[in-house]
């Protein structure tokens, strides 16, 4: 089967579940940023915890390999701050705004157009970034277990329990 078809099928499944989880709305995304509604965190963390365990199990069996993005502290801190500013105004993420549009929230159209502009601007700025921000704190393709020098399950298991603890606290607080 062609990679394009896999992409389409994976996207449809992902979009379906995002819609069912009720996480595509501006009110939910801004609600999370205002620490009023943790629905998105519940969804995201559930997905991450399940995928983390599953992917590492497959990796241990030699079936899949990790695909790491290089750690560049400067770019990730600055980029994260800039992303957060924009996200807090738009109230949609790059991928989820497509789903927001799918369930009828058509102000996502403005976000999509803005993001195309933002991508074009970054392409213009890339040569400058490459000689500045992208050289600040380059650590390469590293993982938490690698940095700590421990077996990966010693990181995964505490993270899973920490996540479950957080979920229990959210429910207790009615967030």
């Amino acid at each position: 089967m062609s990679p394009l078809l896999y992409g389409l099928i994976t996207g449809i499944a992902f979009g379906f579940l995002l819609q069912r989880g009720g996480v595509l709305r501006y009110d939910r995304q801004i609600g999370a940023l205002r620490l009023m509604d943790m629905t998105i965190l519940k969804f995201m963390l559930s997905a991450i915890l399940v995928a983390m365990v599953g992917v590492y199990l497959l990796k241990d069996m030699g079936i899949v390999k990790l695909n790491l993005k290089p750690t560049i502290i400067g770019a990730q801190i600055l980029g994260g701050l800039i992303f957060g500013l924009g996200w807090g105004v738009l109230g949609y993420c790059p991928g989820t705004q497509m789903g927001a549009l799918g369930e009828g929230r058509w102000d996502a159209v403005w976000g999509i157009m803005g993001m195309l502009l933002g991508a074009a601007l970054y392409a213009e700025a890339y040569p400058i970034m490459k000689t500045t921000v992208l050289t600040w704190g380059v650590y390469g393709k590293i993982t938490l277990p690698q940095v700590l020098g421990v077996n990966h399950w010693l990181v995964i298991v505490p993270l899973v329990f920490g996540g479950i603890g957080l979920f229990l606290w959210f429910e207790k607080k009615g967030l």
């Binding site: 980029g79 500013l85 924009g86 996200w87 105004v89 738009l90 705004q97 403005w110 803005g114 502009l117």
Partner: peptide, 22 residues
């Protein structure tokens, strides 16, 4: 008003996302 801010927010968010390589 929503259109202008959503558009600008989107542009800023994507610039940051690309910088962080996310």
């Amino acid at each position: 008003k929503r259109a202008v801010f959503a558009f600008l927010g989107g542009a800023v968010a994507m610039f940051g996302a690309r910088l962080a390589d996310g």
